[in-house]
Amino acid sequence: MSARHVRAPATGTVWQLAAELDAPLAAGSVVLYVESMKMEIPATMPQAGRVTAWLVRVGDAVEEGQPLAELG
């Protein structure tokens, strides 16, 4: 079963959105970066697909595992 969300890889803040909405993305490609412990931790596509909506904005505090983007 394919995942419906990209989830936060670590607790921190959203540093940078790194993908275009609705653009085709390969599995493993970076969708956004979460800043945690002064590092940019990439959140990646769990499978090939598209980001259909952002659930967070740059600067938002996020918890590990929190959904960050919806996948279509």
Binding site: P9, A10, T11, G12, S36, M37, K38, M39, I41, P42, E64
Partner: peptide
């Protein structure tokens, strides 16, 4: 491993 919790 810096990819997990920044390596903390």
């Amino acid at each position: 491993d810096p990819a997990v919790a920044g390596g903390a």
